[in-house]
Design a protein around this nucleic acid. Structure first.
Lengths: 250, 250
DNA sequence: TGCTTATGAACGATTATGATTGATTGTGGA
DNA sequence: TCCACAATCAATCATAATCGTTCATAAGCA
């Protein structure tokens, strides 16, 4: 059995059953445990699956490719609600920055007929924006393969060419003390720069990001207005002292 | 068994079974392993299949067909031949600029395992480059919806951040007197800037571009080495006085 | 005949594989 | 909670399969 065949087989089985066990694969393929282990390591490295103790599962926080986004985007309903509200803050003729990310991506359908200039650092976003016929500038820079986000010094200096009325940021966590955070320092730097070039900054997040802390700090809470779908009363009270919070209930 | 017969047989088998093993082919055709190896290498070069360890699989399982449909299939064989030769000019560790375009797009499969840094202004190219695991910078700028090329002042100034060993340009026409031309002045400006930042510049074109003149002039012939698939003797004589021409015959 | 092309065998180099090891993690009972 | 046991893990090594290259021979062609 060819290596590629095994890989395809594993992915097919995984797609059917959501999870696969290593022992199960050893038996059904006839390959050794070591080989299956290596297969899973390879496939995880190319983000096709996620390893767990004893087997593998479908990748959780997945890419934003249209093909998989439909079924794998978590909190899609909430993100759309957040995006719709965010779009209501935009004026005709505004210039806006759209951060790379799945939540900001949901903003795009609401931007039609607004006569905007949009700048983004997200590869998937620029394609969707163009389909909507919106004038779009991409920052460029070094591309992060997994997320399709552009980062690095090139991206930062490209941003300096622009000024924005509004800046919409995706974030991975917000916390009263630690502020807005995201896993990648490079992405954090881009978000900081974009925000500093904008008259107003909005942070978009679903409720799962509440009180989460990621590795890289973007900014303190008071530097951006937070838009969330729902939030506990205690948490909200804690946040209100720091910044403006807009809760978009269903 | 004739070479062509074997090739046809291999492709038929591959189409049926999705994958073929070398041992399997050795047995069923009676040819030696070396011969089958050569067959697979040939067929891979003409993009009919993709080699893997122990056999071969159908090509482009994960490439994007939709974005490159009509225009790119014209003279596809020729473009691949041109691209393969062009790739032979690249040294390990080079930094190269890849112009947006269908001919330069065909270069990408030949760039694997070359340890390169690639800069491009083509949206479709950056995606394909990333699938190959090549470190890729996108210039960014204003996106031209139809072609997926980035142009404008942002693109130009982004280019100034880099220096290239080699620059590969796609063109729409070449002419002894009028030089290299392309329809869009904005794209011409990008090509000019990229070339001026490169130690060497190559213009890639199929024979249909001979003696064609488009609206915007990129540069005179002597500023770049021309790579074409074929060309009439008279035309070649006229060109040779102006620049170096490399003809990539089948 | 002389020339080119296709072929097959042989070589060392590269890659995939399977078995083994000791470390790590999850499980269940005291 | 703690401990012991079983399952799983990553790392290593030796082996087997496959790879590209080279060279010599055979076949096709003028």
């Amino acid at each position: 059995m060819l290596t590629n065949e095994r890989h395809a087989y594993i992915l097919r089985l995984l797609d059917e059953k959501q999870t696969v066990k290593i022992q199960e694969l050893v038996e059904s393929t006839g390959a050794s445990e070591s080989t299956i282990r290596r297969d899973l390591t390879d496939l995880e490295h190319s983000r096709k699956l996620e390893r767990v103790f004893g087997g593998a599962i479908l990748p959780g926080q997945n890419l934003m490719e249209p093909s998989i986004s439909d079924k794998s985007t978590q909190f899609l309903e909430e993100k759309i609600r957040i995006a719709e509200f965010a779009s209501s803050l935009i004026q005709q003729g505004d210039s806006i920055f759209l951060d790379a990310g799945t939540t900001t991506f949901q903003l795009i359908p609401f931007l039609k007929d607004k006569d905007l200039v949009v700048v983004t650092n997200g590869l998937t976003l620029v394609e969707a924006l163009n389909e909507q016929g919106i004038t779009t500038y991409l920052t460029g820079g070094l591309m992060k393969p997994r997320t399709g986000a552009f980062v690095g010094s090139h991206t930062i200096s490209a941003l300096r060419n622009y000024r924005f009325d509004i800046c919409f940021l995706g974030i991975n966590g917000f916390h009263p003390e630690y502020g807005y955070t995201t896993p990648d320092p490079e992405e954090a730097a881009v978000k900081q720069m974009a925000s500093s070039l904008s008259r107003k900054t909005f942070a978009l997040a679903d409720h799962s990001k509440a009180n989460k802390i990621s590795f890289a700090k973007i900014m303190d809470l008071d530097r951006a207005t937070l838009i969330v779908d729902e939030i506990s009363k205690e948490a909200n009270a804690g946040l209100q002292k720091k910044t403006i919070v807009k809760v978009v209930a269903p």
